[in-house]
């Protein structure tokens, strides 16, 4: 599991959701300034992961080895991308400039990613649509002639998948509510299908 957070200095950080002290979920913690503080014993971590404060030992400078474990994190098109392989870069598609994307919604489907992907490709989003681009973590759909919707596919585990959708183009702003509702129908449709092997 992952903890995502943002300090005052800006960029999103993605860490393993595990405090180096006793393993408490860091996502239960809270952000103060540029540090994430664990809810359990209050150990505090800088944006680079380094532990900078141990409240029970205020006089101690925490050793360099106490460090939260991090993953790459890139914000692009209103979606945060990571790579669990750590070594590699975050696998977002190249869609040109980062501007103009509006959020539709995130939603979770109790089905494997492959099944979700297949259903997205053939779903009716309200206007004739075409697949403009596809990679293992995202599908870009042209919707009508004016809009593009990007759906990032997040395999949560073997039978749960997150879908994160953003849209751009003329009328994108007015279309958000309708697209969000259609995604609910998409979820219902996928979950009504028998699980495919």
């Amino acid at each position: 599991m992952l903890a995502m957070w943002r300090g005052e200095d800006g960029p999103v950080r993605i860490w393993e959701d595990r405090c180096p002290h006793r393993g408490m979920r860091l996502s239960f913690g809270f952000v103060r300034g540029d540090a994430l503080r664990c809810i359990y014993h209050g150990w505090s971590y800088r944006t680079d992961g380094q532990c900078i404060e141990i409240p029970a030992h205020p006089e101690l400078t925490p050793p360099k080895t106490i460090c939260a474990s991090s993953y790459p994190a890139e914000s692009r098109y209103g979606i945060v991308w990571t790579n669990l392989e750590r070594g590699g870069p975050a696998p977002f598609p190249d869609l040109g400039p980062d501007e103009g994307w509006l959020p539709v919604r995130s939603l979770y489907v109790n089905r494997p990613a492959g099944q979700v992907e297949a259903a997205v490709e053939s779903f009716d989003f309200g206007a004739p649509s075409s697949i403009r681009l596809k990679n293992p973590s995202a599908i870009l759909l042209g919707i009508g002639s004016q809009m593009e919707m990007l759906l990032a596919i997040q395999p949560v585990n073997a039978d749960r998948t997150g879908l994160h959708a953003v849209v751009r183009g003329e009328n994108a702003s007015a279309a958000r509510a309708d697209l969000a509702r259609r995604m609910q129908h998409l979820r219902a449709e996928i979950e009504a299908e028998r699980e495919k092997k």
């Binding site: 919604r105 939603l107 509510a177 969000a180 509702r181």
Partner: peptide
């Protein structure tokens, strides 16, 4: 969640 999503968009 679906209700609050629609509310957020509005």
């Amino acid at each position: 969640e679906d209700h609050m999503t629609a509310r957020e968009i509005a």
